[in-house]
């Protein structure tokens, strides 16, 4: 009996939520600029994901006979100072951005941030105090310095670790595959990526935990995990989505900055930050590259620019659509 009742309520709940999201989607689609922005972001990301299929060259392939050339039929966006194809390197750089964004979002904001926010807000007491104090210590650091400090000091350790794994398993290529770079960036971004989300979720949960429907669920003996994930979590999804859409641009930019300073993705693997650094005299190139061929900056910078701009527009629209009262 209880089982049947439960099932019914679940299906009706699902139906309810489906039409809610359909409504949200149709409201969002009506905002032309936001919709176009989302399409642009989607296009950029898909370029990165299918990079191996649509590349015209190898991203490492140099061509000394043809350096610093403008666009032509062979190199669609021209070549850099080593004669590498800029188009190919940009789409592979986007792939780096996609990987870093996805891992940081999932591990940091979504997994750590949401779970800790749920725990802190629901249980309060010392769990809440502990999590909040840790977060406060971390956010007392100037963001970008902390990221750079972590990346610079942890990189050699992580590379050593990867080498040790290679030695003990008799495999090679772990270090050269770029996984280490992703790991370094991921670890460096992790401390900063969860706190904002955690505070947001915590605030929502603090008001929800005393809501009547949660009290009712507790009264009929619903287990705590079920209350947390089944009753409370669905109600914090909207602000989480808004916050994620605003945060993605910042994550992408952090990777670009790290790689720009030579602390993120290592050459020859391409990253938008590495490409920018190579032209603006950070990566051993002379200033003359910037002076004579500033157009080489255009492709990577426009991608970064578009990503940040479009995610901001999307975030604004989602905020309007999902939190109509907060306007």
């Amino acid at each position: 009996m209880a089982n049947i009742l439960n099932k019914d309520s679940v299906t009706s709940e699902l139906k309810g939520s489906r039409s809610h999201w359909r409504q949200v989607w149709s409201n969002f689609r009506r905002r032309r600029l936001a919709f176009i922005s989302l399409v642009i972001v989607g296009l950029i990301y898909s370029l990165g994901i299918v990079a191996p299929l649509i590349q015209t060259h190898d991203y490492q392939e140099t061509n000394i006979a043809k350096t610093q050339q403008g666009p032509d039929h062979e190199n669609w966006l021209g070549t850099d100072r080593l004669g590498r194809d800029i188009y190919t390197r940009v789409i592979w750089g986007i792939q780096t951005t996609v990987i870093i964004t996805a891992t940081t979002l999932i591990t940091g904001s979504l997994f750590l941030g949401v779970t800790m926010g749920l725990l802190a807000g629901y249980f309060r007491g010392w769990i809440d105090a502990g999590i909040m104090r840790i977060g406060e210590v971390i956010s007392a650091f100037p963001d970008i310095l902390l990221i750079i400090l972590l990346a610079a000091t942890l990189r050699p350790r992580i590379v050593d670790l990867a080498r040790a794994i290679e030695d003990s398993t008799n495999t090679t290529g772990l270090v050269s595959s770029g996984v280490v770079d992703y790991l370094v960036i991921g670890v460096a971004l992790l401390p900063l990526s969860w706190f904002g989300m955690m505070r947001l979720v915590r605030g929502q949960v603090l008001t929800l935990r005393d809501a009547e429907y949660v009290e009712a669920a507790r009264a009929i003996g619903t287990s705590t995990p079920r209350i947390l994930f089944r009753h409370i979590l669905p109600n914090v999804v909207s602000p989480v989505i808004v916050s994620v859409s605003f945060g993605i641009g910042a994550i992408a930019l952090s990777e670009v900055v790290l790689s720009f300073f030579g602390l993120g993705v290592q050459p020859p693997r391409p990253s938008l930050g590495v490409m920018i650094g190579e032209v603006t005299a950070r990566g051993g190139a002379s200033v003359s590259v910037l002076r004579d061929h500033p157009e080489q900056l255009l492709a990577p910078i426009i991608v970064v620019w578009l990503l940040i701009f479009c995610w901001n527009i999307v975030g604004d629209a989602l905020n309007d659509v999902l939190n109509p009262r907060a306007r």
């Binding site: 641009g249 930019l253 670009v256 720009f260 920018i276 032209v279 603006t280 910037l290 500033p294 900056l297 910078i301 970064v304 620019w305 940040i308 701009f309 901001n312």
Partner: peptide, 9 residues
């Protein structure tokens, strides 16, 4: 949204 890498150079 314009990156500093763009404005400065």
């Amino acid at each position: 949204a314009m990156p500093v890498f763009f404005t400065a150079p």
